[in-house]
Write a protein that binds this DNA or RNA. Structure first.
Lengths: 186, 186
DNA sequence: ACAGAGGTAGACCAATCTGTCTACCATTTA
DNA sequence: TAAATGGTAGACAGATTGGTCTACCTCTGT
């Protein structure tokens, strides 16, 4: 793994736990065991590092979630896979994601205002909505798929929020049950 | 309004928009037009000010939400009032709350780790869950009321998240529809 | 053999942060 | 009238921040 990747991973872990503004460059460097000059040869600024961290997490999270959803062939299966995945994530049974600390993008987004990272965080959420809707439109009309996707994504966000700040580690199961109930009875 | 309250209000507005760590004491003082010594005669530290801000927002938010829910006499009415209130909030039709910028407690909570403010933010969410469950247990069994309350609160959190980071200003209507569908058909 | 790339360690700079302090002012109360 | 209270303005201290820079080291490719 390159120094660049080590920096991104270390920065992600620290940002995810403590927030972006609470974590200094020097702390990241000390934790990663990397020199300051190396960081600034790879990234122009802390902001640039943060953008790379966001892109890294976005890629990892999408690969994980879409991987689960992709290997299903009907809406009920897909929804079950999605919320089963969330349940695994909340209860730290997913190796590729870090120990659950809520949604990274929600956290980061909350620390900035009218800033480029707000757009990046929104884009992550939009990508998940778009993928879900695309998959549902294989079965339902565009209009129906759009409504269902919005409902499912809303339940997913609610589950993450309740699992984190609500300390409810069954939130994914609860949300998954509601999501399945949205589908027409077969 | 006392200087103490002015400080709390100004600090809240800035924290809510920009995050806690991005906003300095001097910025709050300049915005409020208050001297630094006055701040430190009322609060021991920035952390103490933040705790007062959290308590202030908690009180305001509960007064608003429980006010809406309290003047209803059946679960369907109560849920309708709750999500109608959220819809008003998301679309800036509530004077007593500030212009919608997501959930203050979710934002603040994300900036700290193993800190007292995490407990305070959780307590706010717990209070809303408890009130909802208490009201539902007037109609349903304790077990049923507990499950329903968890579902409703999850929908509420999902709606807030989708309204803010998802840019979906209809999230409250969508969530409200799902919440009403949870109740047994009359 | 040697040039160049990529790394380390850390001194350093300017800015900013929280928090303390002095000096002074205005109002209220005994 | 005198004391106490609560305020303003802002200098100041000490720590910390993001970012630059020098000096040196260690590979690798030609």
């Amino acid at each position: 793994m390159t120094k660049r990747d080590e920096l991104i991973q270390t920065a992600f872990t620290l940002f995810y736990m403590n927030g972006v503004h609470s974590v200094g460059i020097n702390q990241i460097l000390a934790e990663a065991g990397i020199a300051k000059k190396t960081l600034y040869s790879h990234f122009a600024s802390k902001d640039a590092l943060l953008e790379a961290v966001i892109a890294y997490r976005d890629e990892r999270f999408q690969a994980w979630l879409f991987g689960l959803m992709n290997s299903t062939s009907s809406p009920p299966e897909m929804i079950a896979a999605m919320f089963q995945g969330l349940d695994d994530w909340f209860n730290d049974r997913v190796n590729t994601l870090m120990p659950f600390q809520g949604c990274f993008f929600v956290k980061v987004n909350g620390e900035f205002f009218q800033h480029r990272v707000n757009e990046l965080c929104h884009a992550h959420k939009q990508a998940i909505l778009d993928y879900t809707q695309m998959r549902l439109s294989e079965t339902y009309s565009d209009e129906r798929a759009a409504q269902l996707a919005n409902q499912i994504v809303l339940l997913k966000e609610g589950a993450i929020a309740q699992a984190y700040l609500g300390h409810d580690h069954n939130a994914a199961k609860l949300a998954g049950g509601m999501a399945l109930a949205l589908l027409p009875t077969p």
